[in-house]
């Protein structure tokens, strides 16, 4: 992971395992709630990343694509609710309001949003944004902080733990 800037972390993921591992890493450094946007084309690994993150939080079991259900909800720990949204099928940002998704956001709640651009303007801002880009058989990733909470999270990810 390169760069001295605390608001961006990027690198290369050579396979699915690496995408899962990135999810687990983010899970370890997450605050107790917040918003993460996931950007990338079909097949870039957005749901795979989410699976890695959920497994990292202790969730065992299925992590199904929320494309058709629009949202899948998990309680990986007794104090954390995680909503995994997929807005791929949205035709209009107004659908965000109409579906009542605003009510899903709150303290002790982590919201992961795939295809956030489909509800541009209606969504709460992201603490972290992950961009996944297909590069050969692997993926290039770029994590960007959008809030002080996100910056603090990225700082702990990019700083190796102190020895001793």
């Amino acid at each position: 992971m390169g760069g001295d800037d605390n608001s961006v972390v990027d690198g290369y993921l050579k396979d699915e395992q690496a995408t899962l591992a990135l999810g687990a890493t983010v899970a370890r450094h997450l605050p107790s709630g917040g918003v993460i946007y996931l950007l990338g084309d079909l097949g870039a690994g957005k749901t795979t990343f989410t699976r890695g993150l959920l497994n990292g939080l202790g969730h065992i079991g299925r992590v199904k694509s929320p494309t058709y259900t629009l949202v899948e909800t998990y309680t990986p720990t007794p104090v954390l609710t995680l909503h995994h949204f997929d807005l791929y099928r949205f035709g209009d940002p107004m659908e965000w309001e109409d579906a009542g998704f605003r009510d899903y956001f709150g303290p002790d709640t982590l919201c992961i949003v795939e295809w956030p651009e489909k509800a541009a303007g209606a969504l709460p801002p992201a603490d972290l944004t992950l961009q996944l880009t297909v590069e050969g058989t692997g993926r290039h990733y770029c994590l960007t902080a959008g809030t002080p909470t996100g910056t603090a999270c990225l700082r702990t990810i990019s700083t190796p733990p102190a020895v001793g």
Binding site: R89, F90, G91, E95, D98
Partner: peptide, 13 residues
Amino acid sequence: RYGGVVPELASRD
């Protein structure tokens, strides 16, 4: 016509 799914998820629909 729109070249994609327009779900009209709106409860009001």
